[in-house]
Amino acid sequence: MSTSVPETGATAAQSAERRAVRTRWLLVSPAVVIIGCVGILPLSIILLYSLLEPAEYAGVVWTFSPEAWMGLVLERDIFDDTLGLSSAHLTIYTRSILQALFTTVLTLIFGFPTAYFIATRPAKERNIWLFLVTIPFWTNLLIRTFAIMLIVRDEGLVNHALINIGLIEKPLAILYTDVAVAIGLVYAYLPFMVLPLYASMEKLDFRLVEAGYDLYANRRRVLRRVIVPLVKPGVIAGCILVFIPSIGAYVTPRLLGGGKNMMLGNLIANQFGTSRNWPLGSAMALALMGLVMIALVIYVRNVTAAGQKSHG
């Protein structure tokens, strides 16, 4: 950054600073362009479409209408056009939220001990265990979901096994129910819980755990007062990574739900398919995004506040 022309100190510093600013902008510009082109621009189109009227066979008519946003929770009665709460949509929202919460809790219950187990192995062994956790990613989710269908169907592995050991007489109807969808979601998102949990457990100073024992804490107390607070960032990251994709899950409920038991992802996809209501689909997608972002902000704020408290 040296120039051959002599300059006074002040202007040299100024132009160096200007150059630095320009370089910084040049360096971030690819990111800005990508975020603009594949993030903000499509979102603006979605926002625009959500404020228009649906065309008869897919697409939009260019007249302003707030109908789509109202349609998120309200609905005109099929027969007498009176406005009321949309039971169909509310059913699906509730189901989606419950499924996502259930998935998050269950993956945490399974994921926590798994991550703890891996983190407490000798360093060399850990990689093998981590590798095993990531193996399912090598196969497409679609294929893995089909495999689950084969396992839980009426004439499938689980039912045959249960009948053979005499636990049940008639096959359990698991496939094409909310239970099947829940199984699929927990299976699909478990690694997303294990990996961040492991990342924070790996950094856990086990001397603190020992210190806890030395101070006469029992195992449960050590877990609650020492381990959990220390790996809290991992727990939160894991919960976020599981909750967000599972509330918008598409493939799993599509295949395991049997065309019924829809979740939000399917409802949104339907608006761009057979229901032919793009504005409503756009409004739903944005509403879902907004809700998730608000939840995230609240979450992150609480975490940072809690973090400051413990260090302060």
Partner: peptide
Amino acid sequence: LYTKIWNNLLK
């Protein structure tokens, strides 16, 4: 009308 009945059915 059909579409509404149908959507209501698929929920």
